[in-house]
């Protein structure tokens, strides 16, 4: 499975320090990946999320913006936080939401993805939020559906809203993204979170380091503008942000490392390793965590961890994406 999107290197986009002007709107039908966004559009999503976050602090956590719009959450893979986060975001914007989990749908009776999509499409939802285990599944739907498609994770390709909420969380703590040293460590091979983050952090000018066992580092990762190292200590050294990735055993076909214990010894984030980073480092994890595999419990629960803030910010980011997609395109361009 290869990522055949445009390659972005730090510094090649206009905005390095996150100080540029946000775009005037998201003029696209679907949000399929970070690859399709400019740095100005990324800033627009982040700034819109600021306003959305405030809504979550009100006594009445609801605005009427998407009243009468139907959003289908179509999840072909298990998910707690992403699906819940999208559903809360949709409800706070007053959309009508509908959850379809593959395990309880006609997919188990042998229906193809395209047929499922066309069936849903016949009931005219306004947006479909989809997660699928095949890379590019959203892109397929995007070509056949009139509804707007939001990618909530496609195979090993992209997970754009996760990268956006990560960027939002980093910006909240550091005030900027450009010039920061970000270390991303773990199962790089299977991670769509990594791919979306590399694209986004590259566009906003961060200095990204990646580290993991040789078997889990995809060849050609440097083309994303990241620096790869086999040593987690080198990656963490002086880092402003450390992002740990989950070991995705469900996607692993074959043996990538001898044992989980050995993995933890060589690539697990321990309190001792955290001391190599900057004193004000933040530790991130897209969840769900494997405690004692990629991250030690004392680190996950420690003062540097912002893992639960990431979850909270996810709702605001998804509200921003839903709002911007709903308002930004005419029917003509959508068809």
């Amino acid at each position: 499975m290869r990522v055949d999107t445009a390659v972005h290197r730090p510094g090649h986009e206009g905005d390095r320090g996150g100080a540029g002007h946000p775009a005037a709107g998201l003029h696209m039908k679907d949000l399929l990946g970070i690859a399709d966004l400019t740095s100005e559009e990324i800033l627009l999503v982040l700034e819109t999320a600021d306003a959305m976050k405030e809504i979550g602090t009100r006594p009445i956590k609801k605005v009427p913006t998407l009243r009468g719009k139907t959003v289908v959450n179509l999840f072909f893979e298990p998910s707690t936080r992403t699906r819940t986060s999208f559903e809360i975001a949709e409800k706070r914007l007053s959309a009508d939401t509908l959850n379809i989990a593959a395990s309880t749908s006609s997919v188990t009776k042998g229906e193809t993805l395209v047929d499922t999509a066309l069936t849903l499409e016949a009931m005219a939802p306004d947006m479909i939020v989809m997660r699928h285990s095949a890379s590019g599944a959203c892109h397929l739907l995007s070509r056949i559906c009139r509804s707007r498609i939001i990618n909530a994770g496609d195979g090993m390709h992209e997970h754009p809203t996760q990268a956006l909420l990560d960027a939002y969380t980093i910006r909240e703590h550091k005030g900027r993204i450009g010039g920061l040293k970000v270390a991303i460590i773990g199962d790089l091979l299977h991670s769509r979170v990594l791919r979306s983050n590399l694209l986004l952090l590259g566009k906003l000018g961060a200095d990204v380091w990646v580290s993991g066992p040789a078997t889990l580092v995809p060849p050609g990762i440097e083309r994303f503008g990241a620096r790869a190292t086999w040593s987690i200590d080198e990656a963490v050294e002086g880092a402003d942000v450390v992002m740990m990735l989950r070991i995705q055993q469900e996607r692993m076909r074959g043996h990538f490392f001898p044992s989980l214990r050995e993995y933890f010894t060589l690539f697990g984030l321990t309190a001792a390793r955290v001391t190599r980073a900057k004193p004000d480092v933040i530790i991130m994890h897209p969840g769900p965590m494997n405690r004692g595999v990629e991250i030690a419990s004392e680190v996950a629960d420690g003062p540097y961890a912002v893992i639960l803030e990431q979850v909270a910010n996810g709702v605001a980011i998804r509200m921003a994406v839903l709002y911007l997609l709903a308002g930004g395109v005419t029917e003509e361009t959508a068809s």
């Binding site: 005037a24 709107g25 600021d50 809504i55 913006t65 395109v329």
Partner: peptide, 25 residues
């Protein structure tokens, strides 16, 4: 007060700049 999210013309505009949603404080 920011009223952008309460507007009645969100879906009615042709392609054009959307107002940036700002915080209500």
């Amino acid at each position: 007060l920011d009223i952008t999210l309460y507007r009645d013309d969100l879906m009615r505009h042709a392609v054009g700049p959307q107002p940036l949603v700002r915080s209500t404080e």
